[in-house]
Structure formats: structure tokens, C-alpha cells
Design a protein around this nucleic acid. Structure first.
Length: 292
DNA sequence: ATCCTCCCCTAC
DNA sequence: TAAGGTAGGGGAGGAT
């Protein structure tokens, strides 16, 4: 079988096997106290509420702003945004690639080049929700929001690893401190995503490659993708095309043409189900919207 | 017209 | 077994 041949080949050249990767994932689970407890009621665990929030990825994401504020408080207050003098602004949208999964793979060579997904859940056919999947896993059609059961059907060799919230906080801080080294004009969006104004600081491609390299080094190997353009919306649309591990610039002059050929669903807030969802039936492409 | 409060919705 | 929280934008609708 082709798969067997590949395994033999990997062993020959000393690369970690799938077994090595699964063993590392098992060790991660074994060292996670939250998985050792397996306590589910207030009777079994008097600290049930606290345990629940400690294990919640949504709570982690939702309370990130408070931790970000501590970073802001440790820095001098940002100067006012300098005027652009009528020239177009250079706005960056920085977004870490599959953040939780890349933190998991970082420093664990056994997981490199393997399909990896982050979730609680130790059962192969459970309904634990995957919150981050690396690009190898996405190649099997695995993505955020999918239950572990379906992901395992699509890729039996998938490596599932538990959350490491403390590492996410520290890595996010590394990313933000790197960004603040470049400019004080930073707007934090979330734990793994920010906008920054680079107007008048140089050429977009050059700045982006320097910033991405600095983030990758400071975070120990986590990649950021960057979209850039004259405003936040255009920059953000550029990031979609930049991923993974890339940069895409959309200048003001190209912005209208670039955006026109995108599907309506690429716009923020235009994802069903919502109030604008009817538009998706009338038009799939942004270029057609003015005709509606 | 303007300013509120609530409430629904999105994104992360 | 799995860990669905949180902040902020914007519309509706009432009070001024």
C-alpha cells in the first residue's frame, strides 16, 4: 500500500511517524489536569463553575480584551495618528495562521507536517468541537467547528491535542509586543488578530515581510499572514488571499476591482443566517450588488 | 432631530 | 462524554 511505503520511507530517513505524533498527543493529554479530573457535577467538583470557565475556549477568547488592556497599560500612550496629507493610508491586518494549532506544533517536531487539530475530547467518536486545525488537517476537509467524530472519519491519522491557554496568552503577547516595536498605532481585534497603521513607514511588501519574520522569530515559529490596503476592510480582505504564511497588498487604485470579484460572503456581516442573508440568493458576487 | 435603552447579531 | 462566553455595533422604538 502507498501509505505503508510512505511510513517505511519516513522511518528510513528518521522522520517522526504517526505513532510518534500520537504518543506526543497522549503525553499532552496525560499532563493536562483538567482532563484528569473528569468531574462533571457540582457534587463531584465543588469548583465546577471555575473548572468550567478554565476549560472554556470561548471564555478564553471572550476575556482576552482584559488581558490585552494590561499590555496597553504597560506601554506609553500612543500618539495621535499622524495625518496622511491626502495620500492613501497603509493599513495592515495581521492574523496568526491557525493560531491554537500552530502553538501546539511549535517546539514539537513529532507533530510537524502532521494533520493536527485542537480540542478537548479524548474519544474518537465524541462530539468535542475542533477549534483550530492546521493546514495539513484542512487538506482533509477538517475545520473549526467540526466535531471530533467527523474529523476522525475524514482523517483517521488526525492528531488531536488539548488546549494550552497559557501558551496562547504568552504567544499573543509576543505577537503584540513585536507589533508595538514597529508602530504604536495598533488596534487589537482579538487574541490572534490586529490592525496597525503603517502609513509613511515604507513599502508595504518590505514592511510586511519584516514584520512577519519578526513575529515568527519572537513566537518561536508561529506564522502570521498580513493583508494591507488603504483601510481596514480592504486590508482584511487581503488577508484572506495572503493565507497561509503570506502577504497580500491591495492598493487604493486596485481596491474596487479586487473587491468586485469576491463573493458577497467574504464581506463581514454577510454570512447567513442574518438580515442580509437574502442578498446571497439574489447575488453571489460583490460586483453585482449595485444592480440589486 | 437627538439621545437614550434595549435587544439582536456578529466575530473572535 | 465535553467544557456555547463575551464585547461591541447597530437598528427599533420610546422619551425629550
Amino acid at each position: 500500500m502507498a501509505g505503508d511505503t510512505r511510513e517505511v520511507h519516513q522511518r528510513d530517513i528518521g522522520e517522526p511517524s504517526n505513532d510518534d505524533a500520537q504518543r506526543v498527543a497522549n503525553e499532552m493529554r496525560n499532563q493536562e489536569p483538567l482532563l484528569a479530573m473528569k468531574l462533571r457535577t457540582t457534587h463531584e467538583d465543588p469548583e465546577f463553575m471555575s473548572t468550567f470557565f478554565k476549560a472554556s475556549r470561548l471564555h478564553f477568547i471572550g476575556t482576552w480584551k482584559a488581558r490585552y488592556q494590561e499590555i496597553l497599560d504597560s506601554l506609553p500612550p500612543p500618539p495621535a495618528l499622524p495625518p496622511s496629507h491626502g495620500c492613501e493610508r497603509l493599513v495592515f491586518h495581521i492574523d496568526m495562521d491557525c493560531f491554537f494549532a500552530s502553538v501546539a506544533v511549535r517546539g514539537r517536531p513529532e507533530l510537524a507536517n502532521r494533520p493536527v487539530a485542537v480540542c478537548w475530547g479524548t474519544s474518537n467518536n465524541g462530539s468535542a468541537e475542533i477549534s483550530s486545525a492546521n493546514y495539513e488537517a484542512r487538506g482533509f476537509g477538517i475545520g473549526a467547528g467540526m466535531f471530533i467524530r467527523e474529523a476522525r472519519q475524514r482523517c483517521p491519522a488526525l492528531v488531536t491535542v488539548p488546549y494550552e491557554f497559557d501558551k496562547y496568552s504568552a504567544t499573543a503577547e509576543d505577537m503584540y509586543r513585536t507589533l508595538f516595536d514597529f508602530t504604536p498605532h495598533v488596534q487589537g481585534v482579538s487574541v490572534d488578530e490586529a490592525y496597525a497603521d503603517f502609513t509613511g513607514m515604507g513599502e508595504a511588501g518590505d514592511l510586511a515581510s519584516k514584520l512577519r519574520a519578526a513575529i515568527k522569530e519572537r513566537t518561536g515559529g508561529c506564522c502570521a499572514s498580513i493583508g494591507s490596503g488603504p483601510n481596514r476592510l480592504i486590508a482584511r480582505l487581503g488577508t484572506k488571499r495572503a493565507k497561509p504564511d503570506g502577504h497580500w497588498h491591495i492598493a487604493q487604485a486596485q481596491a474596487a476591482a479586487c473587491v468586485a470579484e469576491l463573493p458577497v460572503s467574504d464581506l463581514p456581516v454577510c454570512h447567513p443566517p442574518n438580515d442580509l442573508h437574502g442578498l446571497l440568493y439574489k447575488s453571489s458576487w460583490i460586483v453585482d450588488l449595485p444592480a440589486i
